[in-house]
Amino acid sequence: MNNIKKLPIEIKSIWRLNAIMDFLILIAITIAIFIWRIFAPIDMKKGLGVATLILLITAILVLLIELILVTYHWNFWTYYIDERQVELHHGFFFRKQIIMPIARIQNVTLKQGPILRWKNLQKVIIVTAAGSEEITGLKNDEANNLKELIMKLAQEAKNDI
């Protein structure tokens, strides 16, 4: 357990799927406005046309950026657990390092939506008395192990005090 770990590779396809879903939502809004433009009075047509175009470009840009960033996020999203603390690291250009002592952890929540279930992943949310942080996806058994470990260590840590 004492080494820095990356998220499972499957998380990349989930992030890609999320990116595509964001794209589809934006496209749906764009289409709605486009249809509205067809029925709108003449003087509104120009404005709506511009809005459609802007939304379309934004949607495509968002999709491209999110898809490109998937690999970047995956490469620079690591976690590390030992008997004293949970550490999360993300980012390469902008780096963030989160340190949560196990003695301060109040509870661990595992969450699984339909998309995560499809890849047998779970979202792990680590909750302290002042805010929480999450690990976006871990393999089912790994998430369970992690939960067990944190809770076991948390109990031991409580006994120390």
Binding site: Q97, T128, A130, G131
Partner: peptide, 30 residues
């Protein structure tokens, strides 16, 4: 201190600079 976050970036790293965020409890929240 409930947990801490340390932040920097590759540009700040070159200049040996970093930031720190400390979370504590307050009222009913954080």
């Amino acid at each position: 201190i409930q947990y801490i976050r340390r932040k920097d970036s590759i540009w700040l790293n070159k200049r040996k600079i970093a930031s720190l965020i400390v979370n504590i409890r307050s009222g009913v929240g954080e």
